[in-house]
Design a protein around this nucleic acid. Sequence first.
DNA 1: ACTTATTTTAAACATTTGTTTAAATTCCAT
DNA 2: ATGGAATTTAAACAAATGTTTAAAATAAGT
Lengths: 207, 207
Amino acid sequence: MKKDQSTEQKIKDAARKVFMSKGFSGCTTREIAKSVGINVALLNYYFRSKSKLFELILETALTDFIEGMAEVFHQDLSLEDKTRMLIDREFEFLKKHPELPLFIHAGLNQESESEMDQSPFLGRLRETGIFEQCEQAQAEGKMRKVNMINVTLLFMSNCHFPIMSKKLVCGIYQISDKEHEERMTAHQEIVKEMLINYLFPNSNQHA
Amino acid sequence: MKKDQSTEQKIKDAARKVFMSKGFSGCTTREIAKSVGINVALLNYYFRSKSKLFELILETALTDFIEGMAEVFHQDLSLEDKTRMLIDREFEFLKKHPELPLFIHAGLNQESESEMDQSPFLGRLRETGIFEQCEQAQAEGKMRKVNMINVTLLFMSNCHFPIMSKKLVCGIYQISDKEHEERMTAHQEIVKEMLINYLFPNSNQHA
DNA sequence: ACTTATTTTAAACATTTGTTTAAATTCCAT
DNA sequence: ATGGAATTTAAACAAATGTTTAAAATAAGT
């Protein structure tokens, strides 16, 4: 058996934290090892290389993120309710993991080698039946006829970007962390109303 | 006098290109030097260090971006028209410089040392009178009463994120570059309509 | 033409970095 | 207890990296 917590998992956790805040080339294997309290060689014993470890972390992050969406889509709810729930979930989740979106996008752009296969994620979303639900709502005139890729973009743009841009926004507007948090809270409601109004023009708007 | 084009400028151009695609720690000074066709030492002769060069590139990128916005705000137009023009401009501009937003955000997050002073940017935006124009429109009930920081976020989210997320979107939805371009073209119109509808609820919507 | 300042280079430096090797330690079944 | 496997470490390697030094080449001023 293993120690109190498996070394492998401890490495993954530490790597996740370090990679998230500094990116792949922004940190060293020794830095990760030290933060776990182990030798550098042990990293390559469990994971074959820094790259492999990074790919694993990146893929896990992306999976968690997709699974979170799928979880909402699986619920037995109207599209409007799923929309609200998805946005709320995303804002709450990102409050706890604000580095995630930037990490994913920067990570995907840096790793030109060994491109990750993202196709399983689409299947994972399909399974939830969300696409059919949208198609049907669109056919019934309940939902605006917008390509699903654009719908996805609307959600991600308005949920992820506000978090990603914290440094920029705080820097330009010279506001504190506390004030930024307040803006985020307000933004959560703004995004919900704006997206629901746009995607479901005939709904009775405010829940 | 200098050569055909000043070496300093050639370095800046090359550094911009390399930093944009690989980030600060993702590239080497030798890589930049080679792409200019000069010796490594010359980098440190003109700019004191890799970090200083990077900060310069980052600051320039941010400035260009803010100046682009200010240019629109300076025009003698209604808020709705400025909104349309800003969104169109941003989409067109980012079609040519798609790496810019991710570069800026990743760059700001990586450079914990020597935090850049972004306060001048706010002044640059204030000068345009855009804030007063919004305040007045809000007082007259022509514009929805939303904090200007949230307004900024709505714009940037919906213009910048779609470009930043190309790798992710193409990866998940398994679409080609060409198809992504089509989605972007459609998205430009979607964002315009959605934002105008949301910010100016009483306008006659479609221009 | 000669001197001085500017620009550019080659080479070297000291660290750092990802990875590997071989030995040491721990674990576990018998 | 003991032997073999799994885990962990210290040390070493070679390559890469940011930066500096000192010399060479070029430009400019007189």
